[in-house]
Design a binder for these strands. Sequence first.
DNA 1: CGAGATTCATGTGAAGTATACCTTTAGGCTTAA
DNA 2: AAGCCTAAAGGTATACTTCACATGAATCTCGTA
Length: 404
Amino acid sequence: MHDEKALSTFFSEYMKRNPIFMDKSALKSSYTPDAIQHRDEQIHQVAQILAPCLRFEKPSNLFIYGKTGTGKTLTTKYIMRQILDIAKQNNIPLKTMYINCKLKRVADTEYRLIAQLARDCNLEIPPTGLPTDEVYKLFYAHVDKEKMLLVIILDEIDQLVKKIGDEILYNLTRINDELKNAQITFIGISNDLLFIEHLDARVKSSLSEEEVVFPPYNALQLQSILRERASRAFVADVIGEGVIEKCAAFSAREHGDARRALELMRVAGELAERKGHVKIELHHIDLAQEKIERDWIQETVLMQPKQFQTTLYAILTLYQTRKDTLFTGEIYDLYRKLCRQVSLAPLTQRRISDVIAELDMLGIINAKVISKGRYGRTREITLAAADATLQGMQSLLEDALNLK
DNA sequence: CGAGATTCATGTGAAGTATACCTTTAGGCTTAA
DNA sequence: AAGCCTAAAGGTATACTTCACATGAATCTCGTA
């Protein structure tokens, strides 16, 4: 039982505590700093490629590569913002659009991608029903109403192409031929460095007129980025000895992902603050690491359709009873049983095979096709996350599916 | 003993189906002249 | 007669199913040393 007094004591205690954060947003991934560190070369290249905008000439299409968290999106948005500013001052009609192609049910098919672009122009596009060309036409018509330059940023485009093939890129580059007034420049952002190699030659030459590569940050660079942001985000002297170094090291190991490093910092700070500690210490980072993993999994899992959740639950349950690699067949059997319990129409094994592949793509499970010789071939499924995380995921799914 | 055939359990591609949603069109009803 | 509403017809995207064939190494078979 909570009485009024206890609550008010809590609040007054809370007020007395020294805050740790000054401006938490500086550590969020949406934050765009005034200056970007260690990307001088890339900024210079990208700026040079996009600069023709300011003379109202269409810049070349651009392709940007780099692992996650190497500043691709940040740099691109940063430069675009500057260019937009200057363009505005000089009355140059320039617009940009940003689309993340990975987002499920937003831009993960050709139709949905164009539809999303068209919606960005305030056009009403239904989720299904229209022919794809029709949406293209609506989009052209809107864009082509006046003379202008349009820069479309397609983030994580490798994911989309992996899923539905490269024809879409061909269609996109063809848009310019249809336009009389406006001109479109595409900026493709890819995490996969080999991506362009697998493309059709025509697409390759037209979409990738220019290329810029973003190398990963090393531990030292991560440290200086962290220090810079931390000085904005935190009150002075709340960061314990070696904390920054540890965050940097953690992320440097994961191919120099700055986004991760910053998130780690932020969550560590939040945890410290919630516990009423005055300083962020090393152990907060370990806790933060776990929390981030848990939160990510929770968010991802809950976003999935019921069928995916059920499949995943089957995998988890099997894994609990037998900590070993699992195979498609046994998962499917259990899945069917679960479907009856949850009163869900079971999908065919063919479909579940694809579902498992998608769960693998999401990074929730690891699945690999192997041949067991005489005993057929199957997917070999393993789970990488810590046991505690798996437990959490399982009970989460029990709730979501209304089991037990 | 070893090369080649066999086998199993499922992967994978293509084509078909169900569903949800779209536009167009034609008919019927209302309304105003 | 013109205008408006509605329902049917015809079309699309997506998620899923059905069908049929592809895989690939452990195991089996059989000829040979």
